[in-house]
Design a protein around this nucleic acid. Structure first.
Length: 429
RNA sequence: GGAGAGUUGGCCGAGUGGUUUAAGGCACUGGUCUUGAAAACCAGCGAGGAGCAAUCCUCCCGGGGUUCGAAUCCCUGACUCUCCGCCA
């Protein structure tokens, strides 16, 4: 959510921004409904003011005047009921459209309508070379008895899986490695609920309703399965005011993530790449507006250093304007090399696949969730900035490890940095 | 699951139908004093909206109701605490 005053004063800029971001939103309707709502609000205020005056006079008025005042007050009450009902309709109409307005965009984000315009800004190593034909992680997982998709389908449905044996240990090793690194950076460790209220989910910017919803919701309840710990970590401070001296607040959360993945099929989402449930280690920060860009770069740097530590080739992408989600002001993705992924050309093997992502959502989420900070200098309360970043999404990290570290004999080496957490350096049968 | 008590500004907390347009305290900001600081004293200080301004409106957990008038009464939902029951 943006500041309505800012939107009205910069209507053309906001229109252009929405168009650049591929968001369909009727800003003229927003402006006209808001104006109508405002005028009605003024009428309502006048009536209320008169009612308040009468209520005050009532204590001191003469006996014969009293029925006159009561009569007028009753008229006001009826008039108010009608106007307030209309106001509620206008307000709902305004709010539902206004919520669609996307965040402003960082001036350096590449302009473009689709992911083709995303800009590579950093690369760590070139794609892994093999002296043999590399397998994909589905085959490796099967051969080494690490991942069982058939069991997942049998018990829970398609796009569910069971991790087995060393893959389970890898999940814990990756988790512990990330936690250790981030605690050193001053993050507070959190294990969050896997369910959250709809108002929180919406506040973060996800749409939990409708056919395109990426979020599972529970019947007979206002709860949703979280799609990411971003929801619960951001929701932690909903409706609160933080002293500036307590910022930035940095959290690292461990959570299960649930995604409906409606309509996501095909060879680009094979195996573990696109699943209904996975574990994620998520970074989150609340900062002052002045510090959010710096923190965003810091998160990007952390994500890069974590993947460099695994020694897996990756590239960092500055996401283009048209590919940004509603809340993001700017977003960077890390794409790891996945040797088993289908190439852009059907006959080639290997491709880049998104493994982490970090967004600066500025005050877009804090406005919806009502999270402010008290400025030390002015004593005023202002909306703070919120940022999120993936440390590791376990499922996709497993893909990148299994596929890049596979050997000609079918075994998989363990990244050096994880060996101390596992006590072995190779997975084989 | 049963019984009882609660939810008020950044925090604590008074307030059971009309001088509460929310007392008081803490914290915070400015000032006096001081070599400096602390203390003390003085002053300011909740949020949102409309308006050039004066000023006006809304907000006392959410929703609904009673009343000329509701933080205050009624209904309902959420949450917190205490005790009991059950249970990893």
């Amino acid at each position: 959510m943006l500041d309505i005053k800012f939107v009205l004063q910069n209507l053309e800029l906001i229109k252009q921004n929405a168009e650049n971001r591929n968001v369909k939103v009727d800003l003229d309707k927003i402006a006209s409904v808001y104006e109508e709502r405002k005028l009605l609000q003024q009428e309502i205020d006048e009536l209320r003011s008169e009612r308040n005056v009468i209520a005050k006079d009532m204590t001191s008025c003469s006996a014969e005047n009293r029925p006159v005042l009561v009569e007028r007050s009753k008229e006001i009450k009826e008039a108010l009921a009608t106007k307030e009902k209309r106001f509620k309709e206008l307000d709902e109409s305004f709010t539902s459209e206004f919520m669609k307005v996307p965040n402003l965009t960082h001036p350096d984000s590449p302009l473009g309508k689709s992911e083709d315009y995303n800009r590579e800004i950093y690369r760590y190593k070139e794609p892994t070379q093999f002296s043999f034909k590399p397998k994909d992680h589905v085959e490796i997982g099967q051969d080494l008895d690490l991942i069982d998709f058939e069991l997942g389908t049998k018990v829970s449905g398609s796009k569910f899986y069971f991790l087995k044996n060393e893959a389970v240990l890898l999940e814990y090793a990756i988790t512990k490695f990330a936690i250790d690194a981030l605690i050193k950076e001053g993050f507070t460790l959190i294990s969050t609920p896997d369910l959250a209220k709809m108002e929180i989910v919406e506040g973060i910017g996800y749409n939990p309703r409708g056919s395109e919803a990426q979020i599972y919701s529970l019947n007979n309840s206002d709860l949703c399965l979280i799609g990411t710990a971003e929801i619960t970590l951001g929701g932690m401070l909903a409706n609160s005011v933080i002293d500036e001296q307590d910022l930035p607040k940095k959290f690292v959360g461990i959570s299960h993530c649930f995604r409906t993945e409606a309509g996501a099929y095909g060879s680009f989402s094979k195996g573990l790449y696109r699943v209904h449930q996975f574990t994620k280690i998520e970074m989150f920060a609340f900062t002052t507006p002045e510090k959010s860009e710096e923190t965003h770069e810091y998160f990007k740097g952390l994500e890069e250093s974590l993947f460099r530590a695994l020694d897996i080739p990756f590239r960092t992408i500055d996401i283009c304007v048209g590919d940004l989600g509603g809340p993001a002001y700017r977003k960077y993705d890390l794409e790891a090399w996945m040797p088993g992924r289908r190439g852009d050309d059907e006959n080639t093997n290997g491709n880049w696949g998104e493994v982490t992502s970090t967004s600066n959502c500025t005050d877009y989420q804090s406005r919806r969730l009502n999270i402010k900070y008290k400025s030390k200098e002015t004593g005023k309360t202002e909306y703070l900035h919120m940022l999120n970043g993936t440390a590791f999404a376990i499922s996709r990290t497993l893909i990148s490890i299994l596929e890049n570290y596979q050997q000609s004999d079918g075994s998989v080496l363990v990244p050096k940095v994880l060996q101390p957490y596992l006590g072995f350096d190779v997975i084989k049968r």
